[in-house]
C-alpha cells in the first residue's frame, strides 16, 4: 500500500511519485515461471548430473500429473471466486472405490477410469449444488463436505487398507507401460486437458463467464450470465478431473492403498494454482500457469531429494515460492495500475 496510512485505499488515485518500481519486463506469470523452472533445471542439472536424464525427468512429470490435473479444475473454481478444499477427500473416495472395484470385481481399464471420474463428478455435483444454491461461502461448504467425503471414503475402506490392486491402471504409472516414446501418458493427458481448458476459458463465451462471475458476480448476473449454473459446473468439472487424478494416484502407488491417500492434496493444488498466478480473489488466472506451478513444486521436491537434503525441506521452498509468486503478482498489479 503506497498510500499514507490516514487515507483509505479507495481514494488512492494518483500514482505515487518518488522512487518507482521499474515495470516488469514480462507481463505474464507463465513466462516468469518458465524462466524459474528453466533456471532450476539448469542449476539442478549442473549440481547432480543424474537430474537431466529421462530416468529422473519422467518420474518428475508423472508425479506432477495428479496435482496439475486437480489444479486445472481448481483454477476454474478460483477464477469464478470460489475455492474447493475438499479435493483431497474426493481423491480418497474415488481412489478407494476404484481400487475396490478393480480388486474385487476385476473391472477393465476403461470401466475403472469411468467409475473414478463418475464418482468424482458426483461429489463435485454435491459441492457445486450446495455452493451455487445454498448461497454460503464456498470455503465453509467444502470444509463441511471434506469431512463428509472422508467419512464416506473410510466407510468403503472398512478400517483397513485395500491390498492386491491389479496393475490395470499401469498405463498411467511410472513404469514402462505408462510411456509412449518416453513420454508418460499421465502427463500427456494433463497437457491435453490443460490445452482444452485454456482454449475454453480464453476463447469461448462460456469460459469468459467464469472470469465475469469471479470479477463481480452481481454485475455478471445483470449482464445475463447464468451465475449459479456456471458455479455449479465449475465444481463438477473439478470433481471430474479429481476423479481422473485419483486413477493417476492409484497407478503411481504400490498395490496397497492406505486410508491416508489424498490427504494434503487440496493444499498442494491450491499452492500450484496460486504459484501459477491465479488471483485468489477470483476473476484472473490461467490454467497454463497452474500446470507450470505444479511442475515447479514437483521440481523443487524432486531436486531436494536428489541433492540428498531432507525431503521435508521441499515444503519450506513451496511456502517461499508462494510468497514470492504472490509478491511478484502484487508488484505487477501495482505497476500496471500506476503506469
Amino acid at each position: 500500500m503506497s498510500a499514507p496510512s490516514t487515507a483509505p485505499p479507495a481514494v488512492r488515485r494518483s500514482p505515487a511519485r518518488g522512487p518507482r518500481v521499474l515495470p516488469f519486463p514480462v507481463t505474464g506469470q507463465e513466462v516468469v515461471l518458465l524462466g524459474v523452472i528453466a533456471v532450476l533445471w539448469a542449476v539442478l542439472g549442473a549440481a547432480t548430473p543424474a537430474f537431466l536424464t529421462s530416468g529422473s525427468v519422467v518420474p518428475l512429470l508423472v508425479a506432477t500429473a495428479p496435482i496439475a490435473l486437480i489444479g486445472v479444475g481448481m483454477t476454474v473454481v478460483i477464477i469464478s471466486g470460489g475455492i474447493d478444499v475438499s479435493v483431497g477427500s474426493v481423491v480418497m473416495v474415488c481412489a478407494v472405490v476404484t481400487a475396490e472395484a478393480m480388486t474385487s470385481a476385476g473391472v477393465p481399464l476403461l470401466v475403472a477410469v469411468g467409475l473414478s471420474i463418475a464418482v468424482g463428478g458426483l461429489l463435485g455435483l454435491v459441492n457445486g449444488t450446495l455452493v451455487a444454491y445454498g448461497r454460503v461461502h464456498a470455503i465453509i461448504i467444502t470444509f463441511g463436505t471434506l469431512n463428509v467425503f472422508r467419512f464416506v471414503g473410510l466407510q468403503v475402506f472398512g478400517g483397513s487398507t485395500v491390498d492386491g490392486i491389479p496393475p490395470t491402471l499401469a498405463v498411467f504409472g511410472r513404469g514402462e507401460a505408462g510411456r509412449t516414446l518416453g513420454v508418460p501418458h499421465s502427463f500427456l493427458l494433463v497437457v491435453v486437458v490443460a490445452a482444452l481448458f485454456w482454449y475454453a476459458l480464453r476463447h469461448t463465451a462460456g469460459g469468459r463467464h467464469y472470469y465475469a462471475v469471479g470479477g463481480d458476480a452481481h454485475a455478471a448476473r445483470l449482464a445475463g450470465v447464468p451465475v449459479q449454473r456456471r458455479v455449479l459446473l465449475a465444481y463438477v468439472l473439478t470433481g471430474l478431473l479429481t476423479g481422473l487424478a485419483a486413477c493417476f494416484v492409484i497407478a503411481q502407488g504400490t498395490s496397497t492403498l492406505a486410508p491416508n491417500v489424498g490427504s494434503g492434496m487440496e493444499l498442494a493444488a491450491i499452492a500450484a494454482v496460486v504459484i501459477g498466478g491465479t488471483s485468489i480473489m477470483g476473476g484472473r488466472g490461467s490454467v497454463l500457469g497452474t500446470v507450470l506451478g505444479a511442475l515447479l513444486v514437483q521440481t523443487v521436491a524432486s531436486g531436494i531429494t536428489q541433492l540428498g537434503w531432507p525431503s521435508q525441506l521441499s515444503s519450506l521452498f513451496i511456502g517461499l515460492f508462494i510468497i514470492v509468486a504472490v509478491g511478484v503478482d502484487l508488484l505487477r498489479q501495482r505497476t500496471r495500475r500506476s503506469a
Binding site: L267, I280, S314, S315, L316, G319, I322, I323, V326
Partner: peptide, 13 residues
C-alpha cells in the same frame, strides 16, 4: 488465505 498457506508450509517444514 495465501499468506497462511505459505507460512503453513514454511513452519511445518
Amino acid at each position: 488465505l495465501i499468506t497462511t498457506l505459505a507460512t503453513y508450509y514454511v513452519f511445518s517444514s
